[in-house]
Nucleic acid binder design. Structure first.
Lengths: 237, 237
DNA sequence: CGTTCGATTGATGTCAGTCAACCCGAGTGG
DNA sequence: CCACTCGGGTTGACTGACATCAATCGAACG
């Protein structure tokens, strides 16, 4: 809505570029140089940031917030590919291969995005070749996530897929506590379902089962407490 | 077996490095420099090239042949992640992130591999930053493949998954003919099944059905002729 | 307090997995 | 030249797990 001014005072101080791993190695002076190229924009929860097949003239870097990137399957269901959060970028296909983006991106909460015009970014790359190493690193992370997802979805066992996604979220969003690991779920039941390729009812059922068994405890709809991590890890039969 | 001498006379002439997209932009002199670093090795069909969790001290580039990269799902089935062929590389995780490889690699036919020691490759990267752009490009290709696979596997409809894999293979391995597109299948029925996460019987049934409908024609077990490409493309009701 | 949206629970149907038999072509050996 | 074996592929019958459809719950919010 109000994206007329910078998204946060931190940005004004040129610090937001610092938060982006891609630019971590740059000197303060260089950071300032980069920061001048950045356009900022704020999105509210549920707002579409990007639609598939769109050509984009900027690289999008998340400064704050969370988004989901998704496609639609043949039978019209949403399939979530990634959850991106602070420091992640997307829209690189436009930049690196002159292709349209191949997924839709929607804000999961209030999200601040830094956009760097492709042209500027191309120059940056030439000037600071180390940036491409950072990009490679990020792409490798993404590949990891995707490979795991495929391995997971190849398993017939829906139970193990639910277990795996809970463990994945506990890695990324979990906080250790005396009685277990508390997770702030980034997705609703339906979101989780679309992440692992099942229906929301099935997620519901499996999670209820896990609670009955005393393996997890659901706290409202947005939080989960893992009581028995081992049980989640030892998959199947 | 006999990998004592260079894998092919082409290699002796320093031309094999030329076949690798990563090095395409280098001058002849530079190519020669690279070629000196390369160790070559030949694998027979069915031979394991790499086992998961192994640390590797070289980047592996395929000079000739085809391999499959796979993991095991929770329920013990093989899940194929990639089919790599001439010009593709793997083992980059070791190099770029000092991680063990996360999949197994097996030769699908006689395959010649060029190995570049990590140390040498690190130096190359420093000297020719454009190589990292090539790597990024390849990683993007890989991401494309994975994103498509997930989108595909998210679909309940096994039929559309079989259709999709046939179309994918026709892109990569198909040859136009008067009566249709002839595909040399890189995988057995079981391989195809492990590629799309179903059982071999299901692949068999769906392909028989496609043949009955006159959409494809099976020629032995290793070839398929696509008669009606449109029918394969218009997925699902 | 009522409305709304997401989550849960239950009943039923369907499609792919499983198990098993059989087929077929390639290779082997007498 | 034929009998045998072996591995991959196909086909059929049955089963079970997840999808689907539908009703209900319940927390959040005005």
């Amino acid at each position: 809505m109000n994206h007329d001014k910078g998204c946060c005072e931190k940005c004004e101080h040129k610090l937001c570029a610092r938060r982006v791993p891609i630019f971590k190695e740059l000197s303060t002076e260089e950071i300032n140089q980069v920061a001048d190229l950045i356009i900022r924009r704020k999105y509210v929860k549920g707002e579409m940031i990007l639609m598939g097949d769109q050509f984009l003239d900027s690289l999008m870097i998340i400064n704050q917030g969370k988004v989901k990137a998704f496609r639609y399957t043949g039978d019209g269901k949403e399939q979530i590919l990634y959850i991106f959060t602070e420091g992640d970028f997307f829209g690189e296909k436009n930049l690196l291969r002159k292709q349209a983006v191949t997924y839709n991106v929607e804000a999961l909460e209030e999200t601040h995005i830094c956009m760097i015009p492709n042209k500027s970014f191309g120059l940056l790359l030439k000037e600071f070749p180390d940036i491409s190493l950072k990009i490679i690193e990020q792409l490798c992370n993404r590949i990891d996530r995707l490979e795991n997802a495929i391995q997971n979805m190849g398993s017939k066992n829906v139970e193990s897929r639910v277990n795996a996604v809970i463990l994945e979220f506990s890695e990324k969003y979990g906080k250790e506590q005396e009685n277990g690991i508390l997770i702030d779920l980034p997705l609703s039941r339906e979101g989780i379902a679309n992440y692992i390729g099942v229906t929301r009812e099935t997620v519901s059922r499996k999670m209820s089962y896990l609670q009955e068994e005393g393996i997890i405890e659901m706290i409202g709809n947005k939080k989960v407490l893992i009581l028995d991590k081992e049980a989640l890890e030892q998959d199947v039969e």
